[in-house]
Design a protein around this nucleic acid. Structure first.
Length: 357
DNA sequence: AACGCGGGGTC
DNA sequence: GACCCAGCGTT
């Protein structure tokens, strides 16, 4: 059974393309990365837009392009500079992978973003969606760019109830778009689906009465648009408690450290964090000495905050502390003046704690 | 195939 | 609270 047999047997492809594209021509959003088709700008915007709303991305996009106008500027930058420009945007591996890939483009492709699938998909951070987005938007090639929007729109259009959280469902939609995409204007086609998904065919309360492709939509005809798409529930979020120390030395400088190069918030900076679970009732000062080899005296709690990630919740209790002896031995802490903190990339949770300094 | 990976907005 | 968002890399 082919994709066409299962889903497209009664779908008016040419009529759909025409209705979609003429709606897009009249209603497309005015977005900063749509001013030209510079592949580098398209690339940066697509990485920023992964799991991130347009309104959040816009100021970051402007700032990033101002700091790193070309692949050469980004390739030459310090990673910490790039992370600083990404600070607050989340999913920081996107920034590190983007710079890694841009350096490869400079070295292997003479600074030209590849215009073919084979080369694009082996660049770090470019998966199936981003590859399709770059090829279609920047190079006008008829390649599917299937994201959450596309799966939502087409699950409703074609009444497909496969779980969109599954990998194989994304492949099904890529086959469908392969059949349906406009070869006349693939760039507008892919962007039109995204605009439609963002502004009309929304996750909740879609505006079917104003939908330019309503007459092509099976879910609307059946009155089941609010039942689609089907998506498996996410795993439950776990809570971890920490004491966070804002340690001053005799010069009033404050202690920060760089996080691991792997895992959560990789390579960002933070105030030292003590997992409450590891204390087992023993004093923080003792745990800290065993871990860092430095004597400190902890002060009274200054405040607390809760920070929710997609898969973890941090419960943070903020304490001031004083360094007793600077022994000059190896430890991972840097003592820096408070006014210099703004030059380091910090997670949002630690930015919020700076009010207690 | 499942999981780790941010942060903000909406209802 | 739960859910969503122009997903990807690792295991």
């Amino acid at each position: 059974m082919t994709v066409q047999d299962r889903t497209l047997h009664n779908f008016n492809i040419l009529g759909f393309q025409q209705d979609l594209l003429s709606w897009y021509e009249a209603n497309k959003r005015d977005l900063p990365w749509r001013k030209d088709q510079d592949p580098y700008k398209v690339w940066v915007s697509e990485i920023m837009l992964q799991q991130t709303k347009v309104d959040t991305v816009i100021p970051y996009f402007h700032n990033f392009l101002e700091k790193f106008p070309t692949v050469y500027d980004l390739a030459a930058a310090e990673e910490q500079e790039v992370l600083k420009a990404w600070e607050g945007l989340g999913y920081y591996s996107r920034a590190r992978n983007l710079q890694h890939a841009v350096r490869e483009v400079v070295e292997q492709y003479n600074g030209q973003v590849p215009d073919n699938s084979k080369d694009l998909e082996q660049l770090k951070g470019i998966g199936s969606y981003t590859k399709g987005a770059i090829l279609s938007i920047a190079f006008n090639k008829p390649v599917p760019a299937v994201d959450g929007n596309v799966m939502r729109v087409f699950s409703r259009l074609l009444n497909i109830d496969d779980d969109i959280a599954q990998q194989k469902t994304k492949k099904l939609f890529e086959q469908i778009i392969h059949e349906v995409i406009s070869h006349e204007d693939p760039s507008s086609f892919n962007q039109a689906i995204m605009d439609l998904g963002a502004t009309v065919c929304t996750p909740k309360s879609p505006s079917c009465l104003f939908c330019p492709v309503q007459e092509h939509c099976q879910a609307f005809a059946l009155g089941i648009e609010d039942k689609l798409p089907v998506k498996a529930k996410a795993k439950k979020n776990k809570t971890i408690s920490y004491h966070v120390l804002q340690i001053r030395n005799e010069n009033g400088e404050v202690a920060i450290e760089k996080r691991s190069k792997d895992g959560l918030l990789a390579n960002l900076w933070q105030f030292p964090m003590i997992p409450v679970k590891e204390l087992n009732g023993s004093p923080v000062e003792e745990w800290f000495y065993n871990q860092y080899g430095l004597r400190i005296k902890m002060g009274k709690k200054q405040g607390q905050l809760k920070h929710v990630f997609s898969h973890i919740t941090w419960e943070l209790e903020v304490h001031p502390a004083q360094l007793i002896v600077e022994d000059g031995t190896n430890h991972s802490l840097c003592f820096v003046p408070v006014e210099e903190l703004s030059s380091y990339p910090f997670p949002v949770s630690h930015q919020k704690m700076m009010q207690y300094l």
